[in-house]
Structure formats: C-alpha cells, structure tokens
C-alpha cells in the first residue's frame, strides 16, 4: 500500500464538491447578476472549480494512490 495519509483529504473534498454544486445557500434567492440569476453563476463558477481540483487530483498522484497503485513518477 502506498496510500498517503494526506490523500484522505480528497474524500471530504469530493463530497463538498458534489454537495455544493447545487447552490443550497442561495435557496429562494432571486437576485439577477449580469443578466442571469445569481445561483446560476454560483453553479458555473463551482464547476470551474471542480475542473481545477479534479486536474490537481489527477496530477498529484492521488489518482493512482487511491487505487493502491504507485504513480508513474514515483517508480524507483
């Protein structure tokens, strides 16, 4: 097993990313910002954040370690 303890942090991160892709804090809010309801902007920005964090996850080696494998660059 080469799973690193720091990788555990990805579990709550993914849970948060999924949970708040829905703009729950803006429930019932009807403000319009720049032509669209503000909660649509939240969602657009959130999915952008997801792409950034997903690529970080994939590049950091946590992708392989999560399955109990050794990332490419780590080979002795």
């Amino acid at each position: 097993m080469v799973r690193s303890r720091r990788d555990i942090v990805w579990l709550p991160t993914f849970a948060l990313l999924v949970a708040f892709a829905v703009p729950w804090p803006l429930w019932g809010v009807d403000r319009v910002v720049a032509g669209l309801p503000v909660w649509i902007w939240w969602h657009v920005a959130w999915l952008g954040l997801c792409t950034v964090l997903f690529s970080l996850f994939a590049r950091s080696g946590a992708w392989e370690r999560g399955m109990g494998l050794r990332p490419e660059g780590d080979r002795p």
Binding site: V18, A21, V22, P23, I40, H43, W46, L47, C50, F54
Partner: peptide
C-alpha cells in the same frame, strides 16, 4: 441546469 450540471458534471466525474 443545476440538477444536470451537478449530476453529470460533478457526481458522474467522481
């Protein structure tokens, strides 16, 4: 849009 974006963009990716 929110329902589909969440399920397809985020949950499906995970």
């Amino acid at each position: 849009l929110i329902v589909m974006g969440t399920l397809d963009g985020v949950l499906f990716a995970v």
